[in-house]
Design a binder for these strands. Sequence first.
DNA 1: TTCTGTTATGTTATTTTATAACGGACTCAA
DNA 2: TTGAGTCCGTTATAAAATAACATAACAGAA
Lengths: 133, 133
Amino acid sequence: MSSQKMLTRNQFLVLDVLKEGEKPLSAYDILDRLRGEGLRAPLQIYRALSALIGRGHAHRLESLNAFVACAGKECHKSGLAAFAICEACGQANEFSDFVLRQRLEGWAEREGFRTSHSVVEMHGTCGACVIRS
Amino acid sequence: MSSQKMLTRNQFLVLDVLKEGEKPLSAYDILDRLRGEGLRAPLQIYRALSALIGRGHAHRLESLNAFVACAGKECHKSGLAAFAICEACGQANEFSDFVLRQRLEGWAEREGFRTSHSVVEMHGTCGACVIRS
DNA sequence: TTCTGTTATGTTATTTTATAACGGACTCAA
DNA sequence: TTGAGTCCGTTATAAAATAACATAACAGAA
Ligand SMILES: [Zn+2]
Ligand SMILES: [Zn+2]
Ligand SMILES: [Zn+2]
Ligand SMILES: [Zn+2]
């Protein structure tokens, strides 16, 4: 089962930056970190991001206008990636929760709503930062 | 108990436009509809929106960069407003779900995460548009 | 009253985020 | 070898949000 299509050079570079980054990065942040590799235009980044997100290698955080590498084990299986975003340290913690997904799908089914994608993003202060404060 | 502080003129105008609008509106959409009332700058809209959101009169849809008047009965009581956004007709349906909120708070509690605000936005096709297609 | 802190306002300029529109290079199969 | 598909790179532009600055309006304290 090698339906894993190869990543292009730009896609690989962008994904690598996301994996290195400890925090969500904006497209322009990513661009700045890849100027050394010859990338110059925002569109190069956005195109790579679209492809990566389409294949499940990365996620877009809607409430931050930023992007992260996928860190979930089951986010494809469960079909829903949720995030807890710390406003103090900036880190985003990806998790997935079957009940959560079930609950949303239940609502959708009752209402005849056909879901294509769900956004779940909690904002607040992470455990480490709570202690530190 | 008249702790209901008065809305300012700009806040009232913006909220009124949101209530009239059948769909989520961007700040610039709102501005365009209020030029007749003498509003000229985006900041006037953003300031009014911030105040309205702070008081629970309106919500921001993170995945659309757009705003809606609050249509929920219990979204303050339940502390969580969720939205189902139709990509066909553009309408956003606000709902609230206690189990959903409970589930998110449960995760947060286990992880020591202190939540300040949660974003739940489903994208897809609403019942009416599914039938129509 | 006058002073003073707070809140709301208005305006201009700028930053940040995202896309449109164009053309070239390459692969693969018909 | 031609045509479809995909990726690439560039320039220009649109869309969303904020910075910086200056003024007005007002309530409470002195
Ligand atoms: Zn994931
Ligand atoms: Zn933190
Ligand atoms: Zn509401
Ligand atoms: Zn619809």
